[in-house]
């Protein structure tokens, strides 16, 4: 006689396994964040955040890296936002499927899948060497901009699509042209969604290492101009950890990084959620 498991029992077993695996995934996430916080949060102080880095990072704080991260990211966002939002507007409002739509979409999807080390190689040869911008905030910012364009395009596209069609029709019926409708109706309505894309882009830029280490460099000085080489937080953390310079400082820097990432994701999630709840 063969022992046969009934479909109900089977269902319960399957459910338990799925639940267990999902829980493991969630636990891994909390473990990673918790472990870094446990070892790093005690090292944090106002002094650590506002002091210069001394002795390669063994002593002092992370002010240069905070400033470097800030400038590189802002630069990337300033370049990528108009390009990303413009692309999305064109995709949704001006193309009705067709070849151009497919080419642009393909470009965005493909670019989104390119690994950061390739952006690093490209930024190094194009911005740093060919355009002679050197290891600088500009080179790092431009490289990151190229990297986050797809994120902004995709999120903005979703947001613009969510704007009810009636909004546009009302604008047209009042005599508004296409551009007026986009500027005065479509973009303001989809602003929270667009911001979500920009914020997610900030998150990617802040956490990035491979693309910035070869374009912004790893100088520990306080940046004085857009042409200064700088070491972002992620790069600083990488060097501290990999070269074993100082574990306490590495944990502290990682904690700052993770706090920024958590904040960014939380804000992006809340914004998108509110926006979608309103129009979907």
């Amino acid at each position: 006689m063969t022992f046969r498991i009934g479909p109900r029992t089977n269902q319960i077993i399957a459910y338990s396994i799925l639940l267990l695996m999902t829980l493991i995934t969630v636990v891994v996430l909390f473990f990673i964040i918790g472990y870094v916080f446990k070892n790093g949060i005690g090292q944090l102080s106002l002094e650590f955040l506002t002091d210069k880095t001394r002795d390669m990072g063994k002593e002092g704080g992370i002010l240069p890296s905070i400033l470097g991260t800030f400038f590189v990211t802002i630069f990337a966002i300033i370049i990528a936002t108009p390009l990303g939002v413009g692309s999305a507007v064109y995709l949704v409002e001006y193309t009705k499927g067709g070849l151009i739509h497919r080419i642009i979409s393909f470009g965005a999807d493909c670019l989104a899948g390119v690994p950061s080390i390739i952006f690093g190689l490209f930024g190094f040869i194009f911005f740093v060497i060919k355009l002679n911008l050197g290891w600088s905030i500009i080179s790092g910012g431009l490289t990151l901009a190229v990297m986050i364009i797809p994120t902004i395009i995709r999120t903005t596209e979703e947001a613009i699509k969510a704007v009810p069609h009636s909004f546009r029709e009302i604008s047209y019926s009042l005599g508004g042209g296409k551009l007026d409708t986009i500027l005065k109706v479509v973009l303001p309505t989809s602003l929270p969604g667009i911001l979500t894309g920009v914020i997610l882009g900030i998150g990617r830029a802040v956490g990035e290492t491979a693309a910035v280490i070869f374009t912004a460099g790893s100088s520990l000085g306080i940046p004085t101009s857009a042409f200064s080489s700088t070491r972002t937080l992620a790069v600083h953390f990488y060097i501290l950890a990999r070269e074993g310079i100082s574990m306490p400082k590495a944990y502290a820097t990682a904690t700052v990084l993770i706090i920024i990432i958590l904040l960014v994701n939380f804000i992006a999630y809340r914004l998108m959620h509110r926006f979608m709840a309103k129009y979907y």
Binding site: G107, L121, I149
Partner: peptide, 28 residues
């Protein structure tokens, strides 16, 4: 008129992603 210019400009911008991809491919 304004709408025509805007459309051309947006079309140009919309090619930024594919253009970046081509630049990356070319230089590497």
């Amino acid at each position: 008129m304004k709408d025509k210019i805007a459309e051309k400009l947006l079309l140009f911008i919309a090619f930024s992603a594919i253009l970046s991809l081509l630049l990356i491919t070319f230089f590497i």
